[in-house]
């Protein structure tokens, strides 16, 4: 059943509607549990679109296995998705810095508050992101260290390759995940793929994981996969950041999510006007490259990749 979570009128014959699709189990099979799948907070992150589609398709195909409620919110920022804009168009605001919102605030804060109200009370929420247009990520769950004891056991069931428990950061208190976690609704943030693209293999991997997690939670009775054993990092010093030393065009050489040794070639920053290699980027550590730059143009400081140290 498709319903509207929040709606705001726009000046010219258009409503901004945030919608969800609620899939309920057959009569007599409801365990009372609810899982919410959220995506599209950033309008340029599209991996979650295919996850929502595939999840609904598979549930509808075998609905007799469903024993709880599945709420699917494919577009938290519908204006952004439909206009190929990361933030909220017209306001140029990052929607994931507006939570928990304010029903007395601006229109954007009002929407954020309505979203939080609707999601609160879910037994689990999964917020799917797709990095941005600059970087590709392996399927991973990111967890604020404040909530790791509750969330890491759930994340292990999600069939991702990597779980990154990162340090607390005041700015991140304005994210949807933090707002929900601090209100007692466990929320996992998934990052995978790259902005403006859909990577079907990653989407299938995550959908498999969501079904497995639903099974563990008593929402799905059908067969599911055995989840991958993710690499877990809960020490900030485990992650090595690679930033561009100069502005130029980045040409990637290393492969994503493969072991890499200290001194190994990751890529070059070149200058097409002079024909020169401005910087040869080599790995400073032994590890595995879990983030790699996708968009070639870099400024001094642009993120080239992240390596999880062995």
């Amino acid at each position: 059943m498709i319903t509207t979570v929040a709606s705001v009128e726009m000046p010219l014959d258009e409503s901004l509607k945030i919608q969800k699709n609620r899939i309920m189990p057959e009569e007599g099979k409801d365990s009372g549990k609810r899982i919410s799948i959220v995506t599209g907070i950033h309008g340029d992150e599209l991996e979650g679109q295919y996850v929502c589609f595939e999840l609904i398709r598979r549930i509808e195909e075998q609905k007799h296995f469903l024993t709880g409620t599945v709420d699917i919110y494919p577009a938290m920022n519908p204006l952004g998705i439909d206009s190929i804009t990361r933030g909220i168009p017209a306001f140029d605001l990052d929607m994931n810095r507006l939570f928990p919102g304010n029903t007395e605030g601006s229109m954007t804060e009002f929407l954020a508050a309505e979203i939080v109200k609707d999601l609160c009370g879910s037994d689990m929420c999964i917020d799917i992101h797709a990095s941005n247009i600059y970087l590709t990520e392996v399927p991973q769950v990111r967890i604020n260290e404040l909530h790791k004891d509750i969330l890491v056991p759930y994340a292990k069931e999600l069939n991702v390759d990597f779980i990154w428990v990162h340090g607390a950061n005041t700015v991140l208190e304005a994210t949807l995940a933090h707002s929900l976690n601090s209100r007692g609704t466990p929320t996992l943030v998934v990052e995978m793929g790259v902005g403006m693209r859909i990577t079907k293999e990653y989407c299938y991997q995550l959908v498999d994981g969501i079904f497995h997690l639903m099974q563990v939670m008593g929402i799905w009775q059908g067969e599911t996969i055995t989840p991958r054993q993710p690499v877990i990092s809960d020490n900030n010093d485990d992650v090595c950041f690679l930033n561009a030393s100069v502005s130029g065009v980045f040409i990637k050489e290393a492969k994503h999510w493969e072991k890499i040794h200290k001194g190994e070639h990751i890529g070059d920053i070149i200058h097409p006007l002079t024909g020169k290699v401005l910087d040869r980027i080599e790995s400073p550590v032994d590890g595995i490259l879990f983030t790699i730059r996708e968009y070639p143009i870099v400024d001094e400081g642009s993120l080239i990749g992240r390596i999880l140290k062995w």
């Binding site: 990361r86 700015v171 930033n243 143009i297 400024d299 400081g301 642009s302």
Partner: peptide, 19 residues
């Protein structure tokens, strides 16, 4: 290049991203 807000980057980080 990255649409980030410099006034959300203080006190800054010399080894970090451009802004």
């Amino acid at each position: 290049t990255d649409n980030t807000d410099i006034n959300r980057m203080f006190p800054g980080y010399h080894l970090g991203e451009t802004t």
